[in-house]
Amino acid sequence: MIALCNSLVELVRRSSAELPDDVHQAVLQSLQNEKKGTIAEAALQIIDRNIALAKKKSQPICQDTGSIIFYVECPVNFDQPAFVQAACMAVREATKKGFLRQNSVDSLTGINDGTTVGLGSPSIHFHQHQQENIEVRLILKGGGCENVGAQYSLPNEKLKANRDLDGCRKVILDAVLQAQGKGCGPGILGVCIGGDRASGYEFSKQQFLRNMQDRNPIAELDQLEQDIVATANRLGIGPMGFGGNTTLLGAKICAANRLPASFFVSISYMCWAYRRQGVTLDQKGQIETWLY
């Protein structure tokens, strides 16, 4: 339990302070693409400095250390309640150490007890597999970008969006337009076509586990991903909504089955401070390898 807790504290620390390489590469590329001497370029320069400084000081990239979302791949006989207990201990400890902000508020009383632990925090998703290894992935997602997420029900008459891929494209681009710079762009979209109101958002967030540079194996979705990024980057919203060439760093889209009556498109927006890490653990709970 102690070893597992320590491993999870280290996972939280690294997630909070160090941007994954694939995301950093995308940020650097966007810096190259901005016009010299613009406020968009200056914003990305500060962002790049911030990424280096957070890593060096081992302090949060962003003060909003976000929703804490664990994804656990585990063997069939895995002790899930023990993991939940260790994860809660790790979150308390990471908050004491300043890797996490005191970030969880009782919605009825408004009280922030300073532990960052409560119903829904952290959020832990278990998935059993027929293997012995344990993989733990973590996403920290800030509130600013969470607030600009959107869920559309098709058809949408106002946007002339029908129940087809073109309709999906229209609502996804509308979400980018409505978000402007409020979600700390340049952003990354996770999208689920289909599902219900809960699973749609859930699947959309799971897209953030993918590597920035990967390509969707489903041809139609791959094409839609490329098209969304290219089109969004022609809109001129730019970093922070200052105007400029990079509005999105990426878009990751999946499709889930739906009821005949429902056609949801659920869009989660991730800020440039896209904090995602993962580890494999040995039987004692010690970190073996890093996944990103």
Binding site: I46, N50, L53, I61, C62, Q63, Q102, N112, G114
Partner: peptide
């Protein structure tokens, strides 16, 4: 407009915490 997410660059500009108010009532972030 400050740069969203640039928590470290901006924290380096803070040289002193002079005081805090409503810490217990509102919690640290608020």
């Amino acid at each position: 407009h400050a740069i969203g997410g640039a928590a470290q660059v901006l924290a380096e500009c803070i040289t002193e915490v002079k005081s805090v108010h409503f810490l217990t009532e509102f919690g640290s972030p608020e």
